[in-house]
Amino acid sequence: MATTPAKRITVTIRPKAGLRDPEGNAILHALAALGWEDVENVHVGKTVTFDVGADTDDAARAEAEAMCRKILANPVIEDYEIVVGDTGS
């Protein structure tokens, strides 16, 4: 494995704000039907987690940013959010 210290990256990818989110909508309706009527803003996305060798949080974030732009997210339909932390080990 990488000799540089590893950072744990969590990327959360969601449907772009303002875009129709049919899955989120379906869940919103299901929740309402079960009695949770004051729920709003339900969105379904996905989370990608990985460890990356990087000395600093900023370096790790820059790396993850590049990944998101190149492959992890599609800017036409998705927004993303990156959280940098330390690996569990």
């Binding site: 449907p15 049919p22 379906a26 599609n74 339909i77």
Partner: peptide
């Protein structure tokens, strides 16, 4: 082709899921 940027736009989840 959309993902590759050869065509504009994107294909999202069907509206009925």
């Amino acid at each position: 082709l959309c993902e590759a940027g050869l065509l504009p736009g994107a294909l999202a989840r069907n509206v009925g899921v």
